[in-house]
Each structure stands twice: as C-alpha cells, then as structure tokens.
Amino acid sequence: MENIIENANRLYFLNEGQRKSIEQKAMAHKRYSNIVFDIISANDKELVVQVAQHNHLSENYATADRLKQIGKEVFAQFLYGRKLKVGAKPYDPAPGDVVTTDWIKVKMAQHAFKSVDLEKFFGIDKSTLSKYLSGDRELSRGVKSMFFYFFAYIELGGKVNV
C-alpha cells in the first residue's frame, strides 16, 4: 500500500495492524473526497494532525469543522492517552477554476470579442484557440487563469486594442 499519510513514520506507537487500519481509512477519504492527512507531530502526550482537502471532481467540499471531525474519526481509536489536535485546511479554489469553454464563450459574447481578437491578445494560434473553444483540448489551470484574468481586467475597465 502506498504511503497515504504524510509523515506516517511519526506514528511510532502503532503496530503494523493499527497503521494499516488508519491508512485504509485515510485511503477511503483520499479516493472519495481527495482529503489528505499529515502527521505534524507525535509524542507521548499529543498527536497533531493536519487534514486538508484538494480539488476533486465531485466538487463536494468539506468545511473546516467537517475536516476536523474526519481527522478525529480516523485517529481517535489509537491515541492511547494522547491528546489529539486536528488542524483543517479546506479546499480553496483558484479564481480561474470557474473557467470552462462555455464561460469563455459567454464572456466573448458579452464583450463582443471574436476568436481572431483572442488570438491576437494571447498570441495563441487559430487551431489551438479553436480546440480550447470546442472542448477538444483541455483547459489547463494556467490557461483558465489566463482567460479569467483577461476578462477580469476588461470588466474592471481595462482597455485592449482590437
């Protein structure tokens, strides 16, 4: 089984079976919600765990309180008198994550831009832009950000020469 919990070696007080039990629980959260765990510190008095959620296709994101609860559910069984401290880092989407091909088309229509205009602004060749707009080429996070901030600039009154 791959190392599911970052710094799992800090769980020195667990035997192999207990470690596997925790890793199985953590793997389920990783698989179904892209929630990950990091052991910040562990000693005879306390266990400090960071629970974070990353981008996930379901777009079903947990609150900080729910992430803390998940951390407790995963680790509470094997504390052996230690105090459990759980920090939470909820998913924080990048502004460009709202960008889809449909979003771009709507913005183009709102601002009366044609494909040729975007080709000039971005220095993208016609075939690449066509693939983005048709959905034949995936919009990477960088490309999404480019479109997002371009239209944000325009909507804030920025001027571009057509």
Rank of each mutant, 00 (worst) to 15 (best):
N15I: 14
S33T: 00
H29E: 00
G142L: 13
F147L: 12
T63H: 01
V99H: 07
S21W: 11
I39P: 00
G17L: 13
E23Q: 09
T128M: 07
E59A: 14
I39Y: 02
V143M: 13
N55E: 12
K144M: 13
G71D: 02
D125H: 09
H54S: 11
F37N: 02
V74N: 02
S134L: 03
N15A: 12
T128N: 03
A64I: 03
Y91F: 15
K89M: 05
F147G: 06
G157K: 11
H29V: 00
N34P: 05
G158Q: 10
T128I: 12
Y12Q: 06
G123C: 11
G135I: 04
D97A: 15
N161V: 15
G123A: 13
V36C: 10
D65S: 08
E2V: 11
I70L: 09
K72P: 00
K30N: 07
N7Q: 13
Q50F: 01
I4Q: 00
V86A: 00
K85T: 09
E6K: 14
A62I: 00
N34Q: 07
T63R: 04
K85F: 08
K72A: 15
F37H: 08
I70E: 01
G158T: 06
N9E: 12
A112W: 05
K144I: 14
K25D: 01
A28N: 08
Q53M: 05
V74F: 02
A152E: 14
A64S: 13
F150K: 09
L84V: 07
S115D: 02
V51F: 03
T128V: 14
H56S: 08
Q110F: 12
N55I: 07
N3Q: 11
E73H: 11
Y153V: 04
S130W: 00
L133R: 00
Y132E: 06
G71K: 04
G123H: 09
F121H: 06
V160Y: 04
L57F: 06
F78V: 04
V99W: 05
V98M: 09
F75V: 08
E2C: 06
P95A: 13
Q18N: 11
S115I: 04
R141L: 14
M146Q: 05
P95D: 11
F150Y: 03
E46F: 04
K126L: 03
V99Y: 06
E46V: 03
I154G: 02
Y61L: 09
H29L: 12
E23N: 14
V49P: 04
Q69C: 06
A88G: 02
A26S: 11
E16L: 14
E138C: 07
D92C: 11
D97N: 11
Y91L: 07
F147K: 13
S33M: 02
N15K: 15
F151Q: 05
K68G: 11
S21K: 12
K83G: 02
Y149M: 05
Q24K: 15
K114H: 03
F148H: 14
E23V: 03
D125S: 07
L47I: 07
L118M: 07
R19K: 15
H56R: 06
S127V: 06
